[in-house]
């Protein structure tokens, strides 16, 4: 029986959706054990125990594990891997930070951002900004994997009743300390799990214009807001709005790209959306080559009109 260990991503209060996709991927490999690490995490551990498909919850309580510091957490996971055949983390910034450190400690070649499980050691993953899909087979004794959230269905967060057991690790490695975070409070749906995403690009001019143009439409549609790198670099919106090869990967029911040209690095983050809509004044913009519905128009007249009519 293959035993897998899944990293439970949480903010101290609740579990992030990306974890549920990682549980689904792990269940395709074997029995799923969920690792909840942090400080004051009893509630999160109980939440993990209710996820359908989780057979056991391992709870590592301690201040050293509170902020996902990989220097402290990777040795904990490496220790637990003595009893597991695979470690899977969601391909979030936390998962991407921790998993390779675990892999190196275990002398394993990590498989990043898997899209599917093809066999006990065989997976598909995107390369070259998603312009190619590689099928790779691991030759290592253990697997270390990150899971692309949009590629796997979410496990049911209720219905399970796994036992919770405490585990201990080496604690604080003394290499790093958490200083603080600047996390914007966002009342909108979360970008990576929203059903509708409205994204703006460089054409939105500045932060005020971006907000005045994109927000009313997103409000009317109950949508999350995304952006191109150009819009983030220019300071229209914070970094965590970036969709793309090196930003967030989204696959909503409807993705509306406004004043975005459609560079391959942007497409890498949204081309698995169910329906893509593009509004751009340049009829030759590359975004129209993949958009299901295109509107060639000046966004500064079209978007307010659209917001008024939906």
């Amino acid at each position: 029986m293959t035993r897998t260990l899944v990293w439970v991503e949480h903010d101290g209060a609740s579990i992030k959706d990306a974890t549920l996709s990682a549980v689904t991927a792990a269940a395709q490999l074997g029995e799923v054990h969920a690792l909840v690490a942090g400080h004051n995490i009893d509630g999160v551990a109980d939440e993990a125990a209710r996820i359908t498909g989780v057979a056991r919850v391992l709870k590592a309580e301690g201040a050293a594990y509170a902020h996902g510091l990989p220097e402290n957490i990777a040795p904990l996971i490496a220790g637990l891997l003595a009893d597991h055949d695979a470690f899977l983390a969601p391909a979030t910034t936390t998962g991407k930070n921790i998993a390779p450190r675990v892999a190196a400690l275990m002398d394993v070649a990590q498989i990043s951002e898997i899209l599917s499980v093809e066999g006990p050691k065989t997976f598909t993953r995107p390369i070259y900004a998603g312009n190619a899909i590689a099928t790779v087979e691991s030759s290592d004794a253990r697997l270390v994997i990150t899971v692309r959230g949009t590629a796997f269905a979410k496990a049911d967060p209720t219905g399970g009743e796994a036992p919770v057991e405490s585990v201990a690790g080496p604690g604080d490695a003394g290499l790093s300390s958490y200083q603080g975070a600047d996390i914007a409070k966002n009342e909108r749906p979360e970008l990576t799990s929203a059903k509708i995403v409205v994204s703006g690009g460089r054409a939105l001019k500045d932060a005020e214009t971006f907000a005045a143009t994109i927000t009313p439409l997103a409000d009317r549609l109950g949508a999350a807001i995304g952006a191109s790198r150009a819009a983030v670099d220019a300071g229209y919106v914070p970094n965590d709005y970036q969709v793309g090869q090196t930003g967030k990967i989204v696959a909503p029911q409807v993705y509306i790209a406004i004043g975005i040209s459609g560079a391959i690095q942007h497409l890498a983050g949204m081309k698995d959306s169910k329906t893509i809509i593009a509004i751009n004044k340049d009829e030759d913009a590359p975004i129209f080559q993949i958009a299901d519905i295109g509107l060639v128009a000046d966004l500064f007249t079209a978007v307010p009109e659209l917001a008024a009519k939906v």
Partner: peptide, 11 residues
């Protein structure tokens, strides 16, 4: 740069 915004660590 993290999923929710920015975080600072000292190493």
């Amino acid at each position: 740069e993290i999923d929710g915004g920015l975080e600072t660590v000292k190493l």
